[in-house]
Simulated scan of single mutants.
Amino acid sequence: MTADREIQDEELMGIAQDPEQALRLRRSLRTIAGATSLDPALREMASEVLSGRADVKDAFQDPRYTEAVYQRLHEMRRAAEDQTYVERQQSKGQFADWDARQQAELERERAERDAPVHGSVGGKRSAQR
């Protein structure tokens, strides 16, 4: 993504139900934006939302983007149906490894998000005084 600015989790609270969900949504949008194997319309949607040029609710209702999402889901379902038992077992192992890395990264991002702000007074950022 080449945006000058990236939205913050708080800007996703219009669609996310809590800060954790907003964090995961922003991370997912980053993944989509950077996945060259995905449909360009999906990558564009994610980049537009991340940059703040598009509202997440509007993007999720845009027919170009919803069609790309449905097409990708169809491809995923077809690929899963075509897997052999051995391939499914390998995929499960690969997913477990990937999921463990994702959880570690989420923990790191949560720690950064929740870390106390240095130079704060009374729990508030000094710039807010």
Rank of each mutant, 00 (worst) to 15 (best):
T2N: 15
A3R: 06
R5F: 13
E6R: 11
Q8Y: 02
L12T: 04
L12C: 12
M13Y: 10
G14T: 02
I15M: 15
E20R: 11
R27E: 03
R27S: 11
R27Y: 06
L29M: 12
R30H: 14
G34Y: 05
G34F: 01
G34Q: 13
G34N: 12
G34W: 03
A35T: 07
L38Y: 08
D39A: 07
D39C: 07
P40E: 02
L42S: 10
R43D: 00
E48S: 13
V49A: 01
D55E: 08
K57P: 01
A59G: 05
A59H: 03
F60P: 01
Q61L: 04
R64Y: 03
E67M: 11
Y70C: 00
R72V: 02
A80M: 09
D82V: 00
Q83N: 09
Q89M: 15
Q90S: 14
Q90G: 11
Q94N: 12
D97R: 11
A100Q: 10
Q103Y: 06
A104D: 06
L106S: 06
L106R: 09
E107D: 12
E107N: 12
R108N: 11
E109K: 07
D114Q: 11
V117I: 14
H118K: 10
R125E: 10
R125S: 04
Q128D: 10
Q128P: 01
